[in-house]
């Protein structure tokens, strides 16, 4: 793999809408079984190894709670 990525989700602000999950091309993201303070199943990196840092998730996130990082290997 030429690039590796990672995301940081602001768990408390995430509303668990799942739009990022549907738009993740590498199936990195899933909704957690745990809930945040507002009762939402927030998004998290279920498969961190597959993240390419493509930014699709953050691009579609309505609440701007995802920060994306990427490194070239």
């Amino acid at each position: 793999m030429a690039v590796r990525g990672a995301i940081v989700v602001d768990n408390e602000k995430c509303k668990g809408c799942g739009v990022c999950v549907a738009n993740c091309p590498t199936k990195t993201i899933a909704l957690s079984h745990e809930v945040n303070g507002k009762g939402y199943n927030y998004a998290y990196m279920a498969n961190p190894e597959s993240c390419t840092g493509c930014t699709n998730c953050a691009t579609v996130c309505p609440d701007s709670v995802i920060t994306v990082y990427r490194v070239k290997l």
Partner: peptide, 11 residues
């Protein structure tokens, strides 16, 4: 990976 210099998208 999660370092400021690697940030490609944020709020």
């Amino acid at each position: 990976i999660i370092k400021e210099e690697n940030k490609v998208y944020g709020k």
